[in-house]
Design a protein around this nucleic acid. Structure first.
Lengths: 225, 225
DNA sequence: TTTAATTCTTTAGAATTTCTTTAGAATCAG
DNA sequence: CTGATTCTAAAGAAATTCTAAAGAATTAAA
């Protein structure tokens, strides 16, 4: 779960990044409109949290850009004033939720959770494909009620595949979602290969099926019922 | 955990009952003031969630009745309007928390969790898992009527695990809940390790079971019946 | 068609990170 | 002051992650 915080108050950024990192999110931040724009164009996020009042522009204008760059991305607006027009404008532009400053990080967390549920759990508590069940709370994968132990990277990888079910995901985008933008482009993707194969093997050994297909030269595609 | 929802909107009732049932709560509902009054007098609930605006009376008047029938019961008020006086009046009458409509069930869940935690710390109800009994009043743990001495930190830790049963809790979040806000992120978590191991050892030595599983790189998970 | 280049699979082990455990120093409460 | 608790530090263990390398498969080029 990769999240971008667009916010100019350093203290708030720090608080949010600290908190949500411990919650298992992959956190990045942008403190200006320009930087946010750049990051949004370059990378892919699952959720973007946008403060409206930025020093060099209104966060409102970022909303369409996010939607354009990826339909999947959830958008939460944060604003200092509790203005109904602001709220409506934001939601109209395509934001998924709205929060007024000041707020508790716990509340933002609850909203992100709700958004997460709507986006990928679609109202369910578990993610289910075939005889597999993923419980995000206990971070476990099980096959016919028997737990399959996954490492952190394998678990993240699996979730990324689930979100992009039936779609071809490229190796660079996998790397970006699992390592963040600290990931050096010049690095080779050997690590991705290894984790991918380990996950593939575990899924295959327990079910006998091949869930992850290789699309030569393009990436991988995860398919399941 | 038995919960009563006093709410007249059928859709909302359904949503809440659905959600909280999957969260392991035992859910009941009352859609009128009269029905709620009746249920409160007759049965015992751990938590009552009251919508102020009921068709046949103000939910506000239910608050003293709940307190009278059982001091233990937690009360959360829900109201359509974000009125400060409403909020203050409710809290004055003995409500534990206040929530404005519309809200996300996730958010209510977070509040119930917090409430549960608070109640458990000072309430006199016993917490039971397997052959263990925790008496929050005397802050003691016993196994088959034999007391197990726990230090303060071990006790807090155990309670935090119980509240988050079956969930993966990260080390930072453990630290935050036990040492509070002034816990420095830059501190290393050695102390957490130590207390955790001590608790783990005590539980294991008395019961022979392993209650606390390490989820490598993510945190720990407590499981019990 | 054959060859070369690229991309992918697989394995093994090195490097790193995270966890466990112990012991003793510091701190706190009675 | 004394004893219990809490914290720090450090060493070793364990698990994960990464690197590297060799071979297989696929595509592109000759």
């Amino acid at each position: 779960m990769k999240v971008l915080f667009v916010e100019d108050e350093p203290v708030l950024i720090e608080e949010m990044v600290d908190y949500f990192s411990t919650q298992g999110y992959l956190c990045e931040s942008a403190s200006t409109y320009a930087r946010a724009e750049e990051k949004i164009e370059t990378y892919n996020y699952d959720i973007v949290i946008i403060d409206i009042g930025l020093p060099d522009g209104s966060g409102m204008n970022l909303i369409p850009r996010v939607s354009r760059s990826s339909e999947e991305t959830g958008i939460v607006i944060v604003s200092a004033k509790n203005s109904l027009t602001d709220k409506l404008e934001g939601l109209n532009l395509g934001a998924d939720d709205y929060l007024t400053k000041p707020f508790y990080v716990e509340e933002l967390n609850a909203r992100l959770h709700a958004l997460y549920r709507r986006k990928m759990l679609k109202g369910n508590r578990h993610i289910i494909f075939d005889d597999f069940v993923i419980d995000p709370l206990s971070k476990t994968l099980s096959f016919k009620n028997k737990e399959i132990s996954l490492t952190k990277k394998e678990y993240q990888l699996l979730l990324y595949f689930i979100v992009n079910k039936e779609r071809v995901v490229s190796k660079p985008s996998i790397a970006e979602h699992i390592w963040g933008d600290y990931f050096d482009q010049s690095d080779n993707f050997d690590a991705v290969y290894v984790h991918l194969m380990n996950l593939r093997k575990k899924l295959n050994q327990t079910s006998g099926k091949d869930y992850i297909k290789t699309v030569y030269g393009m990436g991988y595609r995860f398919s399941a019922a």
